[in-house]
Amino acid sequence: MTMYFANFDQLIAMGGHGVYVWSAFAVTVAAMLWLAVAPVIKHRALLNDIQRDSQRNRQRQRDSQRQDQNQQAGQSAAVSNATTDSPSNQSEEDF
């Protein structure tokens, strides 16, 4: 099997149709690369995000436990408790 073109310059020129052929292939390769690479990057970001989320939740759980203990110890933590129980926190915690 031999190459159709005699040399590299002819391959680039494509008998005068080089602009069309190479631009079509370049755009296609770029679009397909984007299709393949974007989900890989997104996958890593998602895993990072989920990990950070669950860490934050665990932290919050620990905090609220400590607060409960403080309350049992007789300290009046009513004010701080009201601030941590805001609705935005509750909507995020669904476990």
Partner: peptide
């Protein structure tokens, strides 16, 4: 001519 090579992606 060579422009037909676009068929391979089209």
């Amino acid at each position: 001519g060579n422009s037909f090579r676009i068929i391979y992606i089209h």
